[in-house]
Design a protein around this nucleic acid. Sequence first.
DNA 1: CGGCTGCTTGAACTTGTTCAACAGCGGTGG
DNA 2: CCACCGCTGTTGAACAAGTTCAAGCAGCCG
Lengths: 247, 247
Amino acid sequence: MTAHVPPGHVGTSPLIRKLLRYTSLSADDIAALEHLTRDRIRQAAARTDIIVEGDAPDHVNLFLSGWACRYKVLEDGRRQIVGLLLPGDFCDFNCFYLRRMDHSVGAIATVTYASLPRDLFERMTTEHPAVAKAMWKDTLATVATQREWTLNLGQRNAYERVAHLFCELYRRLHVVGLTDAQGYSFPLTQADIAEAMGISNVHANRTLQALRSAGLISLSGKSLTIPDLAALQTAGLFSADYLHLDE
Amino acid sequence: MTAHVPPGHVGTSPLIRKLLRYTSLSADDIAALEHLTRDRIRQAAARTDIIVEGDAPDHVNLFLSGWACRYKVLEDGRRQIVGLLLPGDFCDFNCFYLRRMDHSVGAIATVTYASLPRDLFERMTTEHPAVAKAMWKDTLATVATQREWTLNLGQRNAYERVAHLFCELYRRLHVVGLTDAQGYSFPLTQADIAEAMGISNVHANRTLQALRSAGLISLSGKSLTIPDLAALQTAGLFSADYLHLDE
DNA sequence: CGGCTGCTTGAACTTGTTCAACAGCGGTGG
DNA sequence: CCACCGCTGTTGAACAAGTTCAAGCAGCCG
């Protein structure tokens, strides 16, 4: 019987930090995860694709640093970013249980990730059921986030949407220790925000200006500052429940 | 060793029909599923809630007949239908692995469903790994559908959105044998369509009129007719890949 | 220095919303 | 049997939100 690491423990990697919010893992589980990922690190340059729709990948990717996005493209070229991948996220089991990717994953900032072959990943999940359970919980939280994005695009206006996005990112980055008191590092361009929020570039620009002049954010260069998170949450009708971070 | 039922087999229940598209199940697996659901059938009247956001349910629900929807509500009352539940769908493991529901589920037409206690469900998944695998695949297909809805709301206009919805429903109903040559039974009101597509009632009405006068659908009473599915798919920029029905 | 990418602005335009009214229909109670 | 009610669908007209087009600016990197 190995000692269990309490949920509050600050793991070495963002992935472990996040999984510990869902289940307590034994030192053995954590060692296995660390060992598994250590030698399989890959890197993707900013603005390059990691997986493309239609691929049938035989690896599962765990994101360690940098930002990436899931996106889908319509035949006529319209693009939608359907989700953002932050350090500690992993490409869900799509790649694994379903045959073909129904969307693409692209790096936004330079990304490092661990790429695990199917068989190793499978062995890990059978040998370390606690890890498997934490990963399934994380997948379910991802579904919940996807539903919230559906709500965001369906009911909130542009101003509320962007405010909501910034709140969500704050919470998700906070879990993996990537926020500071003022805000966080923010590599998205305005065009990225537009594609994620289903609005035009021009309107994204004007929405950001509105948020700035309301004093809710300041965004310059690659750094986002949130002077009053509660106010931003109100503006975005944000409630963190759907992230299931308190399980 | 029990005989395996081939994927083409028409199961007795919509659930089994659908699961057989993901994995072949043994006669034993199917019997277990049927036995498990037989005595735990519940019914919900049209326009009543089955699960409410904030609940911590201790059952997993498998939908057997009728239509239901997942929906979320903003503080100021705006509602968004974030997904539709058809016969053969099941309330994903949200209820199971995550503590609290982050959305509600409501019946649209009268619904019958099997409600399985956690422990029985858990025993089934350990004793019948093929069933568990099929259910996980189905859950992943649900995530993919949720992403497609995000794309739908983010990039398609009202006309394309509604066309896309009708195509998706056709495919999903077809899998469980609930379509005929002309179309399918359609219990949604125009207000439901509006809430699912993120548009106003008035605009939903006008969009339906546009689809009708383009000859793409006829919708009267509770029955939807699609004279030319290919044309509707083109109008909705629909491709069925994301449903993962051919695995 | 030149060229690229990302950000900003104005103005015309399109899509979808809101408000308000009304029609049809089925059910219910007097 | 009729009157009435509530729900669903329909319509017109004013309005708001967001898009498109086009141009220009700032910063960065080779």
